Amino acid sequence: MSVSVSKDYIFEGSNCFRIRIMLSILSGKPIMIVKIRVREEEPGLLESEVSFLKLIVKSTNGSTFIIDETGTQVTFKPGLLHGGHIEHDCGLQKSISYFLQPLIILAPFCKVPIEATLTGITNDQLDVSIDALRQSTIPLVSKLISVWEKTDIELTVVSRGMPPNGGGKVFFKCPIRNTIKPINLLKPGKIKRIRGLALATRVAPNIANRMIDAAKGLLLKFIPDVYIHSDHLKGKNSGNSPGFGLSLVAETNEGIHFTGEAYSNPSGSDKGPSLPEDVAQEAVFCLFEEIYRGGCVSSINQSLVCLYMALGQPDVSKVEFGPLSPFTVQLLKHMRQILQIAFKLEVKDKSEEDERDEDLRKGSEKIMATCVGIGFSNLSKTII
């Protein structure tokens, strides 16, 4: 099979792999990625990237990809987003979130509502955890695509899977939409409460309690409404490896969610065993950093909001972000190249109070992002 690819859609290197595949599907334009890790000891695509391509093929109708003999070049021809029942083993190289984040973004544009069951690693130190997606991303998607019934969109952890051997299982479902409405998120609000989940699998039950006590000792100095619930799993729901961690979410009075999390070193790691108190402190500090960055969108959801702004109806969308993450910056560059849409980015004017505390606030500049949507329509949506 030969696929004709325009020279404008030939990319080099392994960076932004998922971004390129997502934008290829949404634009309907075939892409080619060349020179993938050609200078590394093990050149070519990783197992996780091949697995991601297989998941995309399962989620669409007509998508195909060709990998050359060396594995350093891949040609992807997009099909139509279909959805439906999907089962996929994500392997042990990357966590389930690596696969689930793009799936969450694409899900509303499927032909039929997606119901995906993914297995692998649910919580690790490399990728966003399933809990962060469940506590922050899912409520945001519900708001942006106007989900009225909570049962219509769901992200459930059936069983936990910690590295290195995984064993986790996650179920995700999402309704479909014809179009995305313009987005306006301009008021982050003030933190009103903090919730959390201390999880422990195949370790002593008091590990979770030690993390809760350590985290509360820091959080209660700033806000009284703190509740962290423990989740100690054993048996078939605890996966194949021991581990523990803490996931925190801070909610503002405007319904904005900021997340922070930390997890123990994998079993057999060169770093040695982790202490529950250290993991709790790291999670709290990560949450503080997210709150300090500010804006109306947590850093893990910036790319989702930017993409929905671009795909929205042909009207003005305006969102206040904190400092943009490297992933978001690359997404904006690729959207300009593939979707031919550009964002207007302005540093928000500082107030007199901000100027007095300029040294304290350095590095937390707020970005006002504005764009006019391209009016993307879900042509695959079944008309009822």
Rank of each mutant, 00 (worst) to 15 (best):
F11Y: 06
F11R: 03
G13C: 01
N15A: 14
R20V: 05
L23A: 02
S24D: 01
I25G: 00
L26M: 01
S27L: 02
G28P: 01
P30C: 00
M32F: 13
M32T: 11
M32H: 11
M32C: 12
I33K: 11
V34N: 11
I36D: 08
I36S: 06
I36F: 06
I36V: 10
R37G: 10
V38C: 14
E40R: 12
E40P: 14
E41I: 10
E42M: 13
E42W: 14
P43I: 01
P43T: 00
G44R: 04
E47R: 08
E47H: 01
S48R: 03
S48L: 11
E49N: 01
S51H: 13
F52Q: 09
L53M: 08
L53I: 05
K54M: 11
L55A: 06
I56S: 02
V57L: 03
K58N: 05
K58D: 08
K58C: 08
K58L: 03
T60G: 03
G62I: 00
G62C: 04
G62N: 10
S63D: 00
T64K: 13
T64I: 09
T64H: 07
I67L: 07
E69F: 14
E69R: 13
T72D: 09
V74T: 04
T75G: 01
T75M: 02
F76G: 13
K77M: 14
E87A: 15
D89F: 08
C90T: 10
C90E: 07
L92G: 04
L92I: 02
L92K: 03
S95C: 07
S95Y: 10
S97M: 04
F99C: 09
F99E: 05
L100E: 07
Q101A: 11
Q101D: 11
L103H: 07
I104R: 07
I104M: 08
I105G: 15
A107F: 05
